[in-house]
Design a protein around this nucleic acid. Structure first.
Length: 326
RNA sequence: CCGCCCUUAGCUCAGACUGGUAGAGCAGUCGACUGUAGAUCGACUUGCCCCCCGUUCAAAUCGGGGAGGGCGGACCA
């Protein structure tokens, strides 16, 4: 797999392709980032972008993880002390998950977002951005919630972070695209360079298969789930025996294979009783999806396999969490 | 500062005028059927009715006070 392919695999959107191709010609030392509001326990949503960071790391890029404590504060997530505590746990889980500790720079937002220069740039952005635009860019706002001033400042800071962290590429879920577009539009106004960005897909809800829904509602698998809980959750997932369900629905089991399992394992073995045909081995998502479609692979076997690989992925983080808590 | 509206199940809301301690839909849980899930049947669960005080035999409901949330208050139309 060449650098461009590795950088963009499983990406839902790349803005712009030309700019990212340019980065891919010389990925070494290029700085990329994802910002996360500190959370005590990582879930699949976090891990999806983390997978992309691992890809980028493998491509030779320098990964920056922003532990966005100031953003969390602006979003009403508690005191700085509480937020810092969860941020520390988050960092530990990321490294347990597989982000290379040597080559990952973990940065707290408060380390630079309170500096005078940053603040003045922020005010300049406030001056040139309408409330309407800022609110539409604010991905972390609960639907139905009415925005506080802090919620409008939030995306503007995200835009500035891209400059202040000296990045070459911004990464995030597709829900971040409006912020990134805001950044691309506004940074040049401040005399800074617009950076390319790359968006990961939003995986469908596990139980309903509804796509593009907020990841905060519904069941998700997290670092603190036990093996049994992972099995239960995966087993209760929506999984018609096809890769392309009707009515705008997705097959979340296949999506988890595609975005979470195949990127992290060389080969996937389906442990299947002789009665149903014995074990199956896959090296690529495509062949597994095709087998599910054809009926060669039964959803129940796919689920059992998915659960065990997901469990393997979260096991180190689960262990780390247990250490931290004792 | 002033005015209006809202607050009842996890969610969206009925119920208030005509007091008798709560309902629907969705969600959820459990079965049946499928070698998974869903769909479909069948059963079931859920409540400081925002808080306090008062009236009353009796208050989600009436009166007073308070809290939280939403919207509005120049001109123009």
């Amino acid at each position: 797999m060449d650098a461009y392919e590795l950088i963009t695999r499983n990406a839902e959107e790349v803005v712009t392709d030309e700019e990212v191709r340019e980065l891919a010609t010389e990925p070494e030392g290029k700085r990329v980032y994802v910002g996360y509001e500190p959370s005590g326990v990582l879930h699949l949503g976090h891990l999806l972008t983390a997978n992309k960071l691992i890809d980028l790391q493998d491509a030779g890029m320098e990964v920056v993880v922003l532990l966005a404590d100031v953003h969390a504060y602006l979003n009403g997530k508690g005191s700085f002390e509480e937020i810092r505590e969860t941020a520390e746990r988050m960092q530990a889980q990321f490294t347990a998950y597989g982000l290379d500790e040597e080559n990952t720079e973990f940065v707290y937002g408060s380390e630079f977002q309170l500096d005078e220069e940053y603040t003045l740039d922020l005010h300049e952005l406030e001056l040139s951005t309408t409330m309407n635009r800022a609110q539409r860019a604010m991905a972390e706002l609960q639907s139905g919630e009415t925005a506080k001033v802090s919620h409008l400042v939030y995306p503007l800071m995200q835009a500035l972070d891209i400059e202040y962290l000296d990045l070459d590429l911004a990464v995030g879920g597709l829900d971040q695209r409006k912020v990134h577009m805001l950044a691309r539009e506004e940074l040049p106004e401040l005399g800074y360079e617009a950076r390319p960005c790359l968006h990961t897909p939003i995986v469908a809800d596990l139980t309903s298969g509804e796509g593009k829904m907020s990841s905060s509602e519904g069941i998700t698998i997290s670092m603190e789930d036990s093996t049994e809980e992972v099995e239960e959750k995966v087993n209760s997932a929506f999984c018609p025996p096809t890769r392309d369900p009707e009515d705008d629905l997705e097959n979340p089991v296949l999506e988890l294979f595609e975005y979470h399992v195949f990127p992290r394992f060389e080969e996937i073995v389906v442990d299947r009783p002789e009665k149903y045909g014995g074990d199956l081995t896959y090296e690529a998502y495509e062949s597994l999806a095709a087998d599910l479609e054809s009926g060669e692979l039964h959803p129940a076997d796919a689920k059992g396999t998915l659960a065990s690989y997901l469990d393997e992925l979260i096991a180190p983080g689960r262990e780390k969490l247990r250490e931290l808590r004792s």
